[in-house]
Design a protein around this nucleic acid. Structure first.
Length: 380
DNA sequence: AAGCCGGTAAACATCG
DNA sequence: CCGATGTTTACCGGCT
């Protein structure tokens, strides 16, 4: 048994003060002691300050964090996009180079960038392994597919056409499948309570139909289903990936795994909760009435949070292995439970779930972090 | 066996 | 009118 205490640094000065308990653990492996979270203000942005982590973790996270050079005030001033702009990257080998982000969507590689070979290089140098035939159907239900598609969109809402496109782009199976699956998608959207239709803003309406979003109250359930599916189907994949890590492989290239892994959006997506200011209600069903709140200087408040302590090692090996621990990528997850939303941060380069940090953030903190990540995920 | 869930097909209405 | 979109119903198979 080992107590681990990490002091995390908030992503930005826009995070407002949070003080509260942590009644929620993201996985059965974790035993979180309730406690207050207090983070010292730092100009270092999301993810957590390396200085408070182990040297190896700190080095890795710092060097792999594309946002580590960008403060939230940059974000507030709209300069983060410059920070993330390829034009701003003088050297392709620069640690802040975001080519990988462009190439892989909002996938955040786990390993230090300086240890990484650019994906284009790897993908061209690694002999292409025969991909799983396109006839192999993804294990994910249509609800999960829709969920992932919507979550992977910048605005967390998509027209059905874009949902089709996302599925086709991420799961080649549907590229050649007959059109019946589209009917299933529409059927699922209509029937499932998890999804909600939003009228498009008439003034800027382009295209047909409505936008679809995920009902926040059903997000945890959808995420859980997704995690279970991913966990179940990633077992064999992990066996493939683990030796590569042990042998010092520079980068685990999803593309050399089978088709599910290659296109696995769970490994790629940043599941970000819609900030509470954007959550749709029945009374206010359109974003045109309730536009997403941009960060404003009003949100710039100092944050103090205390370290989070939780138990490590109190986990039965029989318990379900969390897919996040083996995903090979830094993943940032929001959970919503009751009136709280929870942001799960990776606290270790290996992404062992025992070392994942859980922060409970208030709405403004989520918004701040979400905006940063939106920008990071929106540049590709 | 019954109920639930997910997938599929189909009919129909609406909309641009 | 046509195609895309959205809703609804029905049926089937797998799972618990």
């Amino acid at each position: 048994m080992e107590n681990i205490s990490h002091t995390l640094t908030p992503s930005s000065p826009c995070l407002s003060t949070f003080e509260g308990s942590l009644p929620f653990c993201s996985s059965p492996q974790q035993t979180c002691s309730e406690g207050r979270v207090s983070l010292p203000l730092s100009p270092i942005s999301f993810p957590p300050s390396p200085t408070s982590l182990s040297p190896a973790t700190a080095e890795s996270i710092h060097s792999s964090s594309p946002l580590s050079h960008c403060t939230a005030s940059h974000c507030l001033e709209g300069q983060l996009t410059q920070c993330l702009s390829p034009a701003n990257i003088s050297d392709q080998d620069d640690l802040t180079c975001l080519n990988w982000l462009h190439q892989r969507g909002n996938l955040l590689p786990l390993q230090s960038l300086h240890k990484m070979t650019p994906l284009t290089q790897i993908e061209s140098s690694v002999p292409p392994r025969p991909l799983r035939p396109a006839s192999s159907k993804p294990p994910y239900s249509f609800s999960s597919l829709i969920f992932m598609a919507i979550e992977d969109s910048p605005d967390r809402r998509l027209p059905v056409k874009d949902i089709y496109d996302w599925i086709v782009n991420n799961f080649p199976f549907y590229r050649t499948a007959s059109g019946g699956w589209r009917n299933s998608v529409r059927h699922n959207l209509s029937l499932s309570k998890s999804f909600r239709r939003i009228q498009r803003d008439k003034s800027q309406s382009v295209g047909k139909g409505s936008l679809w979003c995920v009902c926040p109250e059903y997000r945890p359930a959808l995420l859980e289903v997704l995690r279970k599916t991913h966990s179940y189907h990633s077992t064999n994949i992990n066996l493939l990936k683990k030796p590569a890590l042990l042998e010092g492989a520079e980068y685990v290239v999803p593309a050399v795994c089978d088709s599910i892994e290659m296109s696995d959006p769970l490994s790629q997506a940043l599941f970000l909760s819609t900030p509470s200011s954007q959550i749709l209600t029945n009374d206010n069903p359109t974003f045109s009435d309730n536009p997403p709140c941009p960060l404003t200087p009003d949100h710039e408040e100092l944050v103090t949070m205390e370290s989070v302590e939780y138990q490590q090692g109190e986990v039965s090996e029989d318990m379900e292995k969390d897919p996040l621990s083996d995903s090979g990528y830094i993943e940032l997850h929001y959970y919503q439970s009751h009136q709280y939303q929870y942001l799960v941060l990776p606290g270790d380069t290996e992404l062992d779930l025992e070392t994942v940090e859980i922060l409970q953030l208030d709405a403004e903190a989520q918004e701040a972090a979400g905006s940063l990540l939106d920008l990071a995920g929106g540049v590709y």
